[in-house]
């Protein structure tokens, strides 16, 4: 008979990378961050899944996917609705940013400060340091609140929004813009729209997904963007400079963004479940999208 008293269950590694390791939880993303990310995710997938079959109309799955949406015209309508939602939240967010800029006293701090989203010289240094670390295995860059990868994700989306959104609005109302622009603009807009969409999808599915979820040390999922908090061990690994910043002050509450950097309760099992569900659905769809693009490129 086995002696149960000596049996020890191995410590289970949480599936969610943000819940692994030692230490209390710290808030990483507030409700606005998470809401914006969720909206971006949803609209992005609707746009990609309605756009791919049109861009790769020659692919074997295109007709079936279009049929699923209810035909080309219906898919076009859904694409435009999703675009409208994306434009709405993006413009509202931009207005919010501008208002915040005018309201805040330390404008320089907001633009160039340590917490800023704006790329700076340190990001360039970190980028080079990252490649050096790949080669030498030494001096891995120690990211702060936002490393160059987060900034790339954000500004990549801003750039994509301007290029795809601009060309999309041009193609949406050709008769209207045709009053001022010669017709070849629509040829150019088609190329910009389709290629920038491909770059955006490629970046999200190949770079963002790997950096955030599929890296062997984070596999299979990092749900920090869904429930908003992460362990100290996670922060030590991913954003050590930010943790130093928080620790270096007398008490966490005195961080430069005290409400954001406050200690957090561990995510409940329901929050974990919701985070995992959203994350895995998005990951699965991303894999499907990449599969469709590769299939289409090979086929067409």
């Amino acid at each position: 008979m086995p002696d149960n008293s000596t049996f020890r269950a191995p410590a289970l590694t949480p599936m969610d990378a943000a819940q692994r390791g030692e230490g209390p939880f710290i808030w990483r993303f507030n409700l606005l961050h998470r809401l914006m990310h969720l909206l971006a995710m949803l609209t992005f997938y609707v746009l990609v899944l309605t756009g791919i079959p049109l861009r790769y109309a020659c692919a074997p799955f295109a007709a079936e996917l279009m049929h699923m949406w209810g035909g080309v015209e219906r898919a076009g309508l859904i694409h435009r609705i999703a675009a409208g939602v994306m434009i709405t939240y993006s413009v509202l967010f931009a207005i919010w940013l501008v208002l915040r800029f005018f309201k805040v006293e330390k404008k320089f701090e907001l633009l160039r400060g340590y917490d800023s989203m704006i790329p700076n010289l340190q990001d360039g240094k970190d980028f080079l340091a990252q490649w050096r670390w790949y080669v030498t295995g030494r001096n891995r860059p120690r990211f702060g609140r936002y490393g160059y990868l987060e900034k790339l994700d954000f500004f990549g989306e801003v750039w994509g929004f301007i290029i795809i959104g601009g060309s999309g609005i041009l193609l949406w109302f050709p008769e209207f813009w045709g009053r001022w622009l010669p017709g070849w603009w629509f040829n150019v807009a088609t190329v910009f729209h389709g290629y920038e969409a491909l770059i955006a999808a490629g970046f999200i599915f190949v770079v963002h997904f790997f950096n955030v979820h599929l890296r062997p040390d984070k596999f299979p999922l990092d749900a920090v963007m869904f429930h908003g908090r992460a362990t100290r061990a996670y922060m030590e690994e991913e954003h050590p400079a930010l943790l130093e910043e928080i620790d270096g002050r007398p008490g966490v509450g005195e961080s430069r963004r005290p409400r954001l950097d406050a200690p957090a309760p561990p995510p409940s099992s329901r929050q974990t479940l919701i985070g995992a569900t959203l994350g895995f659905i998005a990951l699965g769809m991303g894999v499907i999208c990449i599969g469709m693009i590769v299939w289409a490129v090979a086929f067409c």
Binding site: E175, G178, W180, W184
Partner: peptide, 13 residues
């Protein structure tokens, strides 16, 4: 199909 109010509209290829 397209209300082409300007001649340059037909420069679309």
């Amino acid at each position: 199909c397209h209300e082409a109010s300007r001649a340059a509209f037909v420069e679309y290829d």
